[in-house]
Simulated assay, not measured.
Amino acid sequence: MFKQYIGWKFVLTSIAMVIIVTTIWFVSNLSRKIQEEERKKVATWVAANREVLQDSTGANLNLAIEIVTTNTTIPLILTDEQGRILDSRNLDSARIAQNPTYLQEQLLAFKKQHPPFIMEVDARQKLYNYIYYGDSLILKQVRYYPYIQLLVVTLFIGIVLFALSSTNRATQNQVWVGLAKETAHQLGTPLSSMEAWLEILRENEANSMMVNELAKDVDRLKLITDRFSKIGSVPKLEEKDVVQQIENMTNYIRKRAPQKVQFNIHTQETELAAMISPPLFDWVVENLLKNALDAMEGTGKIDITIENHPTFITIDVADTGKGIPKMNFEKVFKPGFSTKKRGWGLGLSLAKRIIGEYHKGRLYVKNSEVGKGTTFRILLRK
Rank of each mutant, 00 (worst) to 15 (best):
P335R: 14
K326I: 05
D316V: 00
G300F: 02
D303Y: 02
L350G: 08
G300L: 00
P335L: 11
M327V: 14
D316H: 06
A351D: 14
M327H: 12
T320Q: 10
L289E: 04
A292H: 04
V332E: 07
N291L: 03
T299Y: 04
A295D: 05
I304C: 06
A292Q: 05
V332K: 07
D319L: 03
A318Q: 09
A318G: 02
E307M: 05
N291D: 08
I306Q: 01
T299E: 09
A351W: 06
I315Q: 10
K341M: 10
S338M: 06
L350R: 01
N291F: 01
N328S: 15
K341S: 06
G336Y: 13
K341Y: 04
G323N: 12
G300A: 08
T320G: 03
K331L: 06
T311Q: 14
G343I: 04
V332W: 12
S338K: 02
A295Y: 00
H309Q: 13
G323T: 04
T305N: 07
A351T: 05
L289H: 07
M327D: 12
G336N: 06
P335E: 13
I313P: 04
L293S: 05
A295I: 00
S349N: 15
K340M: 08
K326N: 13
N328P: 01
K290T: 09
D316S: 07
G323K: 08
D294C: 00
K340S: 07
G321H: 01
V317T: 14
